[in-house]
Structures are given as structure tokens and as C-alpha cells.
Amino acid sequence: ELVLALYDYQEKSPREVTMKKGDILTLLNSTNKDWWKVEVNDRQGFVPASYVKKLD
């Protein structure tokens, strides 16, 4: 499943990933309501769920 980055996000820990507004990311896990695991540029990590939106 793919998600769209709604905002820029700068990683604050090694478990997170940086994304730019408009990026298309692969959603790996959305079981946590606050932090979703995504893959971007061959890196996996977490981003705030409120910063991304699922693409239909």
C-alpha cells in the first residue's frame, strides 16, 4: 500500500525516516495509530501517521 507525505518530516532518531511533502512511500505497518512504518529510498522507519495519507 502507498501513502503520500502531506508535510516534510525530519527524522529525530535512527528508527525514523526523513520525507518531503509530496513523497510517495510504501506503507509497511499501520497498526500503531500515531507512528506508521514506511519505506522510502530503500530505508525503513517510522513517520508520524498524521503526516501521511493512504492513496486509493
Rank of each mutant, 00 (worst) to 15 (best):
K53S: 11
S30V: 07
E11H: 09
A5Q: 01
D56Q: 11
E1G: 13
N32I: 05
K37I: 14
Q44E: 10
W35M: 06
Q44K: 09
Y7V: 08
K21P: 03
K21I: 06
S30L: 05
G22T: 02
E16S: 07
K33D: 11
K33W: 09
K20E: 06
W35S: 02
D34T: 14
I24V: 11
R43W: 05
K53P: 02
K20S: 09
Q10K: 13
K20T: 09
F46E: 04
M19N: 00
T31R: 10
V40S: 15
K20V: 09
D23V: 05
K54T: 08
L4R: 09
K53W: 10
N41W: 12
L28T: 05
V52T: 04
S50D: 08
L55Y: 09
D42P: 06
L27V: 07
Q10G: 08
N32E: 10
S13W: 06
L28G: 01
R15F: 12
W36D: 00
R43L: 06
V52Q: 00
W35C: 06
T31C: 12
P48L: 04
V17M: 13
K33F: 09
V52A: 03
V47Q: 01
V47A: 03
E39N: 08
T31V: 10
M19S: 00
L28H: 05
T18C: 06
E11K: 14
V52L: 15
V17G: 02
D42K: 12
Q10H: 14
N41P: 10
E16C: 07
Y9N: 01
A5I: 02
K37L: 15
D8R: 03
L27G: 00
L6R: 06
K37W: 14
V40E: 03
V47C: 03
L55C: 12
D42Y: 11
N29Y: 07
I24E: 03
V52F: 06
E11N: 07
N41T: 09
T31N: 12
L4T: 08
Q44S: 12
M19L: 10
V52W: 02
P14K: 10
V47K: 00
K53N: 06
W36R: 01
V38Y: 01
K12Y: 06
D8V: 03
P48D: 02
D23H: 05
V17T: 06
E1N: 13
V17K: 01
L25C: 11
E39D: 07
L2F: 14
K33Y: 09
K12L: 09
E1P: 13
L27I: 06
T31Q: 13
E39R: 13
N29L: 09
D56Y: 13
P14I: 11
E11G: 15
V3C: 14
Y51P: 01
R43E: 05
E16N: 06
D23Y: 06
G45L: 05
L27W: 02
D42V: 07
L27M: 04
T18R: 06
D42M: 12
V40L: 15
L2I: 09
K54R: 14
K54E: 06
L4V: 15
W36P: 00
W36G: 01
Y9S: 01
V38L: 04
S13V: 05
D56M: 12
E16L: 05
D56L: 11
L6M: 09
K33I: 11
N29W: 08
E39V: 12
L28Y: 04
E1Y: 13
G22M: 03
K37D: 03
G22W: 07
K20Y: 11
K37P: 01
M19Q: 02
G45Y: 05
T31G: 11
D56A: 12
V47D: 02
G45S: 02
G45P: 00
I24L: 09
E39Q: 15
K21G: 05
K53D: 07
Y51A: 09
T18A: 07
D8Y: 04
Q44G: 07
L6Q: 04
P48S: 02
E16H: 06
N32D: 14
V38W: 00
K33A: 13
K20G: 04
E11A: 15
N29M: 09
R43H: 07
K33Q: 13
Q10V: 14
G45N: 00
T26Y: 13
V3F: 08
T18L: 03
E39G: 11
Q44N: 08
R15S: 12
G22R: 03
V17F: 15
V3G: 14
I24M: 07
Q10S: 11
L25E: 00
A5L: 02
N32L: 09
Y7I: 08
N41R: 14
E39L: 12
M19W: 01
T26G: 09
N29C: 12
R15N: 14
S13H: 12
L4P: 00
E1L: 13
V17H: 03
K12R: 14
L28C: 07
W36C: 04
S13R: 08
D34A: 11
L28R: 06
D34N: 14
T18I: 03
E16T: 08
L6A: 04
Y9F: 07
N29G: 07
T26C: 12
L25V: 07
R15D: 13
R43V: 07
K33E: 10
T26D: 05
G45R: 01
W36T: 03
V47T: 02
M19A: 02
M19R: 00
I24Q: 05
Q44F: 07
K54D: 04
K54W: 08
K54S: 08
A5Y: 01
D23G: 04
D23N: 08
N41D: 14
T26P: 15
N29P: 03
R15Q: 12
A49M: 05
L6P: 00
W35D: 00
K21V: 08
V47M: 00
P14F: 09
K20P: 01
L55Q: 05
V40F: 15
K53Q: 13
R43K: 11
I24Y: 07
D23Q: 15
R43A: 06
K20I: 08
K53H: 09
Y9P: 00
P14L: 10
E16V: 05
K37H: 11
V40R: 15
K37C: 13
L4W: 08
V47Y: 00
Y51C: 09
S30D: 15
V47W: 00
G22Q: 03
L2A: 07
I24K: 06
V38F: 01
N29T: 08
V3Q: 02
Q44C: 10
G45F: 09
P48R: 04
E39C: 14
F46S: 03
W36S: 03
N29R: 07
E11I: 06
N32A: 09
S30E: 13
A5S: 05
L2R: 13
E11L: 08
V3Y: 13
S13E: 09
R15L: 14
A49E: 04
E16K: 04
N32R: 10
E16Q: 11
Y51G: 05
K20A: 09
D8M: 03
M19C: 06
T18G: 08
V40W: 08
D56F: 13
Y51D: 03
L25N: 00
R15M: 13
V17E: 00
D23P: 01
D8G: 06
L55T: 06
V52Y: 01
L6Y: 03
T18E: 04
K21R: 12
L4N: 02
S50Q: 11
K37S: 07
P14Q: 10
K20H: 11
L4S: 05
F46Q: 03
V38M: 02
K37F: 15
Y9E: 00
A49V: 05
V17A: 05
E16Y: 06
N41Y: 14
D34C: 15
D42W: 08
G45I: 05
D23E: 13
K33R: 14
S50V: 09
V3W: 10
D42H: 13
V38N: 00
I24D: 01
W36K: 02
K53E: 11
K37V: 12
E11W: 06
K12Q: 14
N32P: 05
S30F: 07
G45V: 05
R43P: 00
S30K: 08
D42N: 15
D23S: 09
L6T: 04
S30A: 13
Q10E: 15
L2K: 15
